[in-house]
Simulated assay, not measured.
Amino acid sequence: MDWNTSKNRDFEDMIQGKPGLIILDGEMNNKLMKKERMTKAVLESMLRQQGVFDISEVRVAFLELSGKLSVLKRGEDSEYKGDETEGTKD
């Protein structure tokens, strides 16, 4: 990736934002929840709407720019190859 492409992508992220990793391996990202002013009750409600009744079932979940939740349950085939070192306990 050249410098120009990198800078354009950074600018696009700054203007439009990007989805936030809100759950990784059943652990809530408290830092993101605080930033988005989301309570645990709201997140749990959103998970139930996705058919998830126990947060430990979640491999990864993203809070999309639209405010919706994208969830990948444990054991489902995954294309997610994200950075496993991203903190979720902040």
Rank of each mutant, 00 (worst) to 15 (best):
R59C: 15
E44T: 04
R37E: 06
R59T: 11
F62E: 13
D13V: 03
S78Y: 00
K35F: 13
M28L: 09
T5N: 05
I55S: 04
R74V: 12
F11S: 12
S6D: 11
E57H: 05
L47F: 02
S66A: 10
V42S: 08
E12L: 11
E57M: 06
S70Q: 11
L32D: 02
I22W: 07
E36D: 12
E76C: 04
P19F: 05
K31D: 09
K81W: 00
F62A: 14
L65K: 11
L21C: 09
T39M: 02
L65R: 03
E12C: 12
F11A: 12
A41F: 14
T5I: 07
K35A: 13
R74A: 11
K40P: 01
S56P: 02
L63K: 04
Q50K: 15
V58W: 05
K34I: 03
G17C: 00
K81I: 01
Q49T: 08
K40L: 14
N4T: 13
K34D: 07
D77E: 07
Q50A: 14
Y80C: 05
L24S: 04
I22A: 03
E79F: 00
E57Y: 05
K35H: 10
M33C: 04
F62G: 11
L24T: 00
T39N: 08
P19N: 10
M38R: 01
V71H: 10
S6N: 14
S78W: 01
R9A: 15
M38Q: 08
K35N: 15
V71N: 09
D77S: 10
G75H: 04
E76Q: 13
G20A: 15
E57S: 07
L72G: 02
E12I: 13
L72H: 03
D13R: 06
V52D: 07
L65G: 01
T39P: 00
E64S: 01
K35G: 07
Q49S: 12
E12N: 12
D54K: 14
P19D: 14
L43K: 04
K34Y: 07
K34V: 03
E12K: 10
S45P: 00
L63W: 02
D54L: 06
N8R: 09
D25A: 00
S45L: 02
R48E: 15
K68E: 07
V71Q: 12
L63N: 11
G26A: 05
R74F: 06
L65P: 03
D2K: 14
V60R: 07
G75F: 10
V42W: 02
K7Y: 07
L72S: 08
V71E: 10
Q50R: 15
K35S: 12
K35Y: 12
L32Q: 06
K7H: 08
K34R: 13
D13K: 15
R59H: 15
S6A: 10
R48G: 06
V42F: 01
D2I: 11
D77P: 06
R74P: 00
G20I: 13
E57C: 08
D2E: 12
W3C: 02
E27M: 03
R59A: 15
Q50E: 09
D13T: 09
E12F: 10
K31C: 08
W3I: 03
